[in-house]
Design a binder for these strands. Structure first.
Length: 487
RNA sequence: GGCGGCAUAGCCAAGUGGCUAAGGCAGAGGAUUGCAAAUCCUCGAUCCCCGGUUCGAAUCCGGGUGCCGCCUCCA
């Protein structure tokens, strides 16, 4: 079956076909760098990562672009707005540029902890002001925008497809009376492309005045087109961006180029935490770093978030995170067992079983990134192989399949994803116990093996308990003692 | 007020007309173990409610209830 995605633009699943055979170009709405990224942000970033990994698994060369919004958006189209990044900078008496720099570095650290592969380009809004100005000029030339006292607005009445993405029409927008008429705007739904404000901390010279800054939709269309072309394949983001952000992007991009902007739009459903909308005031707000500081690994967080289909409502809980951790441990144990010495040979039946799992895994993801049935195929295989005596060839085949699976889901144990809080500089509070290094574990395990040989079980159990408390699990097996770190 | 989505076991979550409703986590009992761990075996669902269509519905239609999103800057 061909790959298919649910395209917001058409409201249904459709077969995916890139504009250029074999190559996929996609753009992802990235973070606004005025704070640490939270798990909701990461639901969106993880969709982008899974999408990229699966497309690569299916043989496509993928070009990914994710913006870094380092100039806050204007607060609203009715002026008087405050830039979020600037608001934070003023509050903390910091230079907004330094603040952005700090949170950009933190963002990349979080990406690593979460096992997210790097996009090819992370364009910063502040480094693309000339590109935005050029696009605004094109919009003015083509009659899609107008200037009022140093500000430039997009004229939505000039773009008849406005609303096509979100299912809105100008009439239905008017029906909800939440937008007050703006004196400078020809139409209440016209949106700002450029604003002037001499008091803004981050400001640039433009054809419309010496002290201005871009509107909050223009960066994505300008940067997307710069790095991916006037038309590209996929654009992703949170569902809240559907309207007005992405709607405006389409209007700007297509208004400027006269060509179709993006083929396929994918939107991530917002997650809930403990059954409620995540909000700082509710105390159910988690950044990645909050969870790492509680001792959870990046991959456990990754699994907890990724294992729910991106368009389904997801309820994030610490219990769920704990379940994710346990699930990954089960996979770890299976993977470790595959390295055991085995008699040579192959079992045709097992080879067929692995092939079936491979087919089911790929087919599930082909269908709009169906992660649940894909992971179920893996778990079913593990359950079946656990009860079979595998020969060397069988184990090698299973290892190869697992490597493929991990290439797509990125969930199995890797050092980076197992890193604790110490590695990202959060141990100030000392919430994490000190994990022993491999040499120390080896020493304690050897000591315990000797104690067991002398039948000094109290001593042996004490060592096992100590290691357990420090995140290392021991297993006494017929062929010796094996250890692993908790997920 | 306008537009849209979701509701499946203690928790998470597949399944969109038809064999005994996937899979994971948690829990109970058993095998195994010095004890554990891991693994294996056994055990769990009036598919939100009411009505309808159909030989047959979790799945389609109508109504209801609940939750969520967008319509303002939030993934």
């Amino acid at each position: 079956m061909a790959i298919q995605f649910f395209n917001t633009l058409t409201g249904r699943k459709e077969p995916f076909q890139p504009l250029e055979p074999g190559r996929v170009r996609m753009y992802h709405c990235g973070p606004t760098v005025y704070d640490y990224a939270h798990i909701g942000n990461f639901r969106s970033f993880l969709l982008a990562d899974l999408l990229r990994r699966h497309l690569e698994y299916r043989g496509f060369a993928v070009t990914q672009v994710m913006n870094l919004t380092d100039v806050g958006h204007i607060r609203d189209d009715a002026d008087e707005g405050e830039d979020k990044l600037e608001a934070r900078a003023r509050r903390e008496r910091q230079d907004p540029w330094a603040l952005a720099e700090h949170y950009i570095r933190a963002f990349f650290e979080d990406l690593d902890v979460m096992g997210v592969r790097r996009a090819q380009v992370y364009p910063r809004a502040t480094e693309h002001i000339p590109d935005m100005i050029r696009q605004i000029e094109r919009l003015l030339e083509r009659g899609h925008a107008y200037v009022v006292e140093g500000a430039v607005y997009f004229d939505v009445s000039s773009f008849e497809r406005y609303g096509a993405l979100s299912g809105n029409t100008l009439e239905s927008l008017r029906a909800g009376h939440r937008i007050d008429p703006h004196p400078d705007k020809r139409n209440p739904f016209d949106f700002a492309l450029w604003k002037s404000d001499p008091h803004h901390l981050m400001k640039w010279e433009s054809p419309w005045g010496p002290h201005g800054f871009p509107g909050w939709h223009i960066e994505c269309s300008a940067m997307g087109m710069k790095y991916l072309g006037e038309s590209f394949d996929i654009h992703t983001g949170g569902e809240d961006n559907k309207f007005p952000h992405h709607e405006c992007e389409i209007a700007q991009a297509e208004g400027a180029s006269g060509r179709p902007f993006v083929r396929t739009w994918l939107h991530v459903r917002h997650l809930l935490v403990d059954g409620e909308k995540m909000a700082k005031s509710k105390g159910n707000f988690y950044t990645i770093r909050d969870l790492v500081a509680k001792g959870y690994s990046g991959r456990a967080i990754r699994h907890a978030i990724l294992s729910t289909h991106y368009r389904a409502p997801m309820n994030f809980t610490l219990d769920g995170l704990e379940a994710a951790r346990r699930t990954l441990e089960r996979i770890d144990v299976f993977r470790a067992a595959l390295a055991d010495p085995r008699p040579p040979g192959d079992t045709p039946e097992i080879e067929a079983r692995i092939e079936a799992a491979r087919a089911a895994f790929g087919a599930a993801l082909d269908d709009d990134l169906g992660i649940s049935p894909a992971l179920a195929a893996l778990h079913e295989l593990i359950g079946e192989l656990n009860k079979r005596a595998l020969r060397a060839g069988d184990a090698a085949r299973a290892r190869a399949f697992l490597a493929e699976v991990d290439d797509v889901v990125g969930l199995f144990a890797t050092p980076a994803q197992l890193r604790g809080a110490a590695e990202i500089g959060l141990t100030a509070g000392g919430t994490l116990r000190a994990a022993p290094d491999d040499a120390e574990v080896a020493r304690l395990v050897a000591e315990r093996v000797a104690a067991r040989a002398r039948r000094e079980f109290a001593r042996a159990d004490a060592i096992r308990d100590e290691l357990k408390a420090r995140g290392v699990i021991l297993e006494d097996r017929a062929d010796g003692t094996r250890w692993r770190r908790e997920g």
